[in-house]
Design a protein around this nucleic acid. Structure first.
Lengths: 343, 343
DNA sequence: TTTTTATATGATTTCGTATTCATAATACAC
DNA sequence: GTGTATTATGAATACGAAATCATATAAAAA
């Protein structure tokens, strides 16, 4: 069952292979009629050019890799979906790879880049706090999505698309304060330097400060480790821990909606009520946060737009069109749900 | 910035390219010391063999494609994640492609197969009801995951991994009956022949029959079309429709958990209570169904196991190890939550 | 020692396509 | 009508690795 090659087509048409090649690739130097004839024969013989041979000759693959930390995180769903559609549309091959949290993202990227001759890379999420390898070792275009480029020197000039986590966190915690909450717990990952956790914590601190509320270490609850970190389970367990302690908190800022929902469950099981006894806010603006009862007060991230923007930057870089170093900050939107109340 | 090739390595080692090739690919006909020396040089020069060239020579790619209908569906998350891990582990390239509902899945697969020289295909979800092209045109190994192979002749002998949707649906609807419900609405997709919708509907009908309950067309509610079909929104809108009608239903069998949760929201907004006024059951056993308040009575599908089983079958076929035509049926598990009560 | 066999190795060919180069055919300018 | 530019085309080569083939060397058998 050997497949038909360009040679076969050439023979069938009574022309040379280069002529066939010209027809396939819309190259000049071929008459309209010859081209038409060839294309017709190709159509009929259902010939498809061998990708490996093409790529070998062109010394590049039309592959864009998306490296993501935790496919399971449903926040990424619409983003990945958008990536897939867009990349497919541009006739690139879309490959998806998870990166374990403890791995050096950059070296994974480097290896992949060489092995697969990538055209571009999107980092989706990720923290880079453990990446010893510097991003500038990557020689193909890449962009960070949903990760604001930290100030560290490893990230200088790295194109990225994100919302301003610190600002948005500030916004939502400030909103809690405006409702009269003075004891606000934060459920996050507290490791220094970790992208999301760090920025959201900063926003939290700033909001407290602005509202003249003292910051207490004891109000900071660290989520589970590893893949479960941002899950309902993580929020559930962390809230249980909090409820068992003699915390005086009246509100919880959860690092994302899933964690918030998990927390709500723990509160419910402890015989309390949201927002009656505890106000709970999330982050991300997942679909579920709208339909959950009570609907979750959250920060909506414009995920589809962000995904599109990231790929636009990437394609521009691939085409060498414009200056790199674009850092697009999208505005988040405070969505006031039923999970918060004034006290 | 041209990359180092096998020739360069050969030159650096003072040997021929074939010797280098032998060293790389663990082929016989090379002395241990030469091999060691070469591998060392390769290590140092961080040479990576060009994939296209390899694949061209071997006339095959180490690619496994996963074709999925609706990446957005969070039911697929853990499955895709599992696929990715497993495929990566076996040193294959993992490519993911969405298939629009209105497209012929099989022709998409065929095109991809030829273009990319795939090693195998997994169909995740999907309905095939609009695929005119027959599955047996696909010449690489493939397997259906979470789709029970329908009886139609197009599917004869097609390996698949699934739960028995009809049986499990029967189970959960029968459970509703056992609680005393006699008017049970079903929220599903009613198009004839559509995989999931069809089987779950059959189970629903059988359960009614067993419990001597008449089947009424009016209790069947069709979900939204297209990508939103299995979403919370779909359940929400459908439930609104039902509540506006003078339906006497006391229970709802939603085609999946997301739809169930959407329905709960509509019930809540109408001033009713789950399970007080309506019992609601879902399907799939998503994480959220455990944490939702009330937790959702559902059928849990063992998704990780199913994913692993599907790939095992696929790899066996790829290695030509065993007889094909395996249809593995996993048992679902009825999880009784708080969203149902006896009346 | 001579012949046979096994082993290690390099030169060469091959995979299927794109591209470069050379050439034939045609159109255009003078 | 001769010379030049233009267009259409096929032959030959390159891409990088793997496999085939031929050969040199060493080891074993005669």
């Amino acid at each position: 069952m050997k497949s038909v090659t360009i040679k076969d087509i050439a023979k069938m048409c009574g022309v040379g292979v280069s002529t066939v090649s010209r027809a396939i690739n819309d190259k000049p130097g071929i008459s309209a009629e010859t081209k038409e004839k060839i294309l017709k024969v190709i159509e009929e013989s259902n010939y498809v050019p061998n990708n490996s041979a093409r790529n070998l000759k062109r010394s590049e693959n039309e592959i864009i890799a998306v490296l993501v930390q935790g496919i399971n995180n449903s926040f990424f769903n619409p983003i990945i979906s958008e990536f897939e559609k867009f990349i497919q549309e541009k006739n690139y091959t879309f490959i998806l790879q998870q990166i374990d949290e403890y791995k050096d993202e950059v070296s994974v990227a480097l290896e992949l880049e060489k092995e697969k001759k990538l055209k571009g890379i999107v980092f989706l999420g990720g923290m880079f706090h453990k990446s010893k390898t510097k991003l500038d070792k990557i020689s193909v275009p890449f962009v960070l999505c949903t990760v604001s480029a930290p100030e560290g020197k490893n990230f200088r000039g790295v194109p990225s698309v994100s919302v301003d986590d610190e600002k948005e966190s500030f916004k939502i915690v400030d909103y809690l304060c405006s409702l009269g909450h003075k004891n606000i717990a934060i459920f996050s990952s507290t490791e220094v330097d970790e992208g999301i956790g760090y920025h959201r914590m900063q926003g939290y601190k700033k909001a407290l400060k602005k509202n003249n509320i003292a910051y207490f270490n004891t109000n900071v609850y660290n989520l589970l480790d590893g893949n479960e970190r941002y899950s309902e389970k993580s929020g559930y367990i962390t809230a249980k821990k909090m409820l068992k302690s003699e915390s005086k908190c009246t509100a919880i800022f959860a690092v994302n909606d899933s964690v918030a929902i998990g927390a709500c469950r723990a509160i419910y099981e402890a015989g309390f009520n949201v927002p009656g006894d505890y106000s709970v806010v999330g982050y991300d603006g997942l679909d579920i946060s709208r339909y959950y009862i009570p609907s979750i007060t959250t920060i909506r991230q414009p995920v589809e737009e962000m995904a599109k923007a990231a790929l636009k930057i990437l394609f521009k870089m691939i085409n060498g069109e414009e200056s790199i170093n674009q850092n697009i900050i999208f505005p988040g939107q405070l969505i006031i749900g039923e999970s918060t109340r004034s006290i």
